[in-house]
Amino acid sequence: MAQQNPDNLNRRKFLREGLFGGTLAMLGAAAAAISAKGRKTEYVWQIDPYKCIGCGNCATHCVLNESAVKCVHTYAMCGYCDLCTGYFVPEPKALDTAAENQLCPTGAIIRTFVEDPYFEYTIDEPLCIGCGKCVVGCAAFGNGSLFLQVRHDRCVNCNECAIAAACPSQAFKRVPADQPYLLKDGQ
């Protein structure tokens, strides 16, 4: 055994060095192959508003206690209706700002008079919970100018978005960070 040892050790050392070099080369090749495909910019999560069905998962599944998803408004698409079906519950008692007439559970839509018979609807984002009730109402009977979007000032950009995993209509997708919104354009 004793005289075998040095030879044995050399062989082992040679094997180790070989494996080290091999692994280093492999890592280098893999890194090169992947970064050759890599984009410079990162991806962020966004909702395709034309796929969204306003199911309400956005309000409950976000890792943030107050969802990163909020309702946004494309004013150019809005009809400025007096009876806004995104703002009022079905068959409202009166067309005013009383809580029982409002569809929004947190009263996050501000209704302001513009001129007869038009009213402007603005989302008070800190109040919005992203439940999509107004989105459904607006899309069902109105122009669909209210829709949900991931707000990137709030989104922590999880590697796997918890809402995306729960989205029934597969409306969540990764979009390049230089075009982080999928807005309805009103055209």
Binding site: P49, Y50, A76, M77, C78, G79, Y80, C81, V114, E115, Y118, E120, A139, F141, G142, N143, G144, K184, G186
Partner: peptide, 15 residues
Amino acid sequence: WAIERFPPPEFETDY
């Protein structure tokens, strides 16, 4: 789905 049922109004005021 998102059909323009009410065309956006032409405002008379300076809104």
